[in-house]
Design a protein around this nucleic acid. Structure first.
Lengths: 208, 208
DNA sequence: GTCTATAGTTAGATAGAC
DNA sequence: GTCTATCTAACTATAGAC
């Protein structure tokens, strides 16, 4: 790759990142169909036609955005540790999930919206990579049960419980802040969430 | 009200019900902005213009649909029983919520989609009727804690945990069926959900 | 790589005959 | 209460100059 190519590549990368960031807000606010390329361009501070220069069409942009989100999850934090005892592993996992709901709620919301509307784009992913990854998580829980480190619980439903209860604070934030009678959740509020969920789930699984 | 008026009223009621049913599917599939009145009319088997005869505009139709959904919840099942001990009350509540996710997933999904996208229509409801109703639920849990019938848990976060984990099977059904490697969840699957969630949450709250 | 102009499509909403 | 026809607005996508 020549120097000219590299700097072109950098412009591409930088502009695509700006577009992704703008698209994320737009998709969260209006959903896939409701999102308009005009408003994404305005949010990004670039001309409308440039979006079409970088992305084939709206579906292509949305697909790549979803891929980015999933990639961050898979490489970053969304994994139970097989090397730890269940108490530490699950506590760490709950905290990581709650903090992700705090720090990047829009990613969670876009993923949730995609699933709620039937996962038209993520259907293939759910039946391939997701299933493989899930199987590794289930195996970890099963090993804890076999070793008597926790009660016999259905691994799938335990995982769903952790996912839903932690992502709730991103996806349903509008309802949560109304319920807590606040403008927005504070750092302390999120710590209280971690403590509450950890307390109930650890004890509920019979983990000492 | 004359007989003629009554039968007119009945036609209105019947047609509005048909439109609501069609609109529900359309809003679930495409979201608020993506839903088209043309397709709602096609699903309902009536002419496009008739939708505008019964509803002022798309927002009006969506608002009334949301009101219907919330009304069913409030009058039907979505309440902790203050007269029971926590074990029975929470077990009953979890079962009712899971069965509602099974029997009417689209209502749950429309509500979830509205919240995820910032609750533009439900904002007022969340800050009035919802808060009042929630306070009654919180008070019930607090009374159980005071009487020593359960551990000291944060009532709000316990309620969020129950709502999110039970509604998950409606809202995130696409992911759940992929995870369970099924076409659709069976009656037995839903019983397993009730059993798993009840087991973990009851024990997790220190309820005997 | 960026911009303006525009083609082509789809939508919401209304008027007016029946 | 229902239907056809139509107006108006918004949006995606592309062509072509710079």
């Amino acid at each position: 790759m020549t120097k000219a190519n590299m700097s072109e590549g950098n412009i591409r990368q930088k502009n695509k990142a700006i577009i992704f960031s703008a698209a994320k807000k737009e998709f969260v606010t209006y959903g896939f169909k409701g999102a308009s390329i005009k408003r994404i361009a305005e949010r990004a501070g670039i001309a409308r036609a440039n979006i079409h220069y970088y992305f084939k069409d709206k579906t292509d942009l949305y697909q790549q955005l979803l891929s980015n989100i999933i990639e961050v999850w898979n490489t970053d934090y969304d994994t139970l540790s097989a090397d730890q005892a269940p108490k530490e592993a699950i506590s760490t996992y709950i905290r990581a999930k709650v903090m992700h709901s705090k720090n990047d709620p829009d990613s969670s919301r876009i993923f949730a919206s995609e699933l709620i509307h039937g996962a038209p784009i993520l259907h293939d992913y759910l039946n391939t990579d997701f299933k493989t990854w899930l199987q590794s998580q289930v195996a970890i829980i099963e090993s804890w049960v076999e070793k008597g480190q926790m009660d016999k619980v259905n691994p799938h439903h335990l995982l769903f419980l952790i996912w839903s209860s932690t992502q709730h604070y991103a996806d349903f934030n509008a309802q949560v802040v109304a319920a807590l009678d606040k403008e927005a959740m504070s750092d302390d509020d999120f710590e209280e969430v971690v403590a509450s969920l950890t307390q109930i789930i650890i004890k509920g699984c019979g983990i000492k």
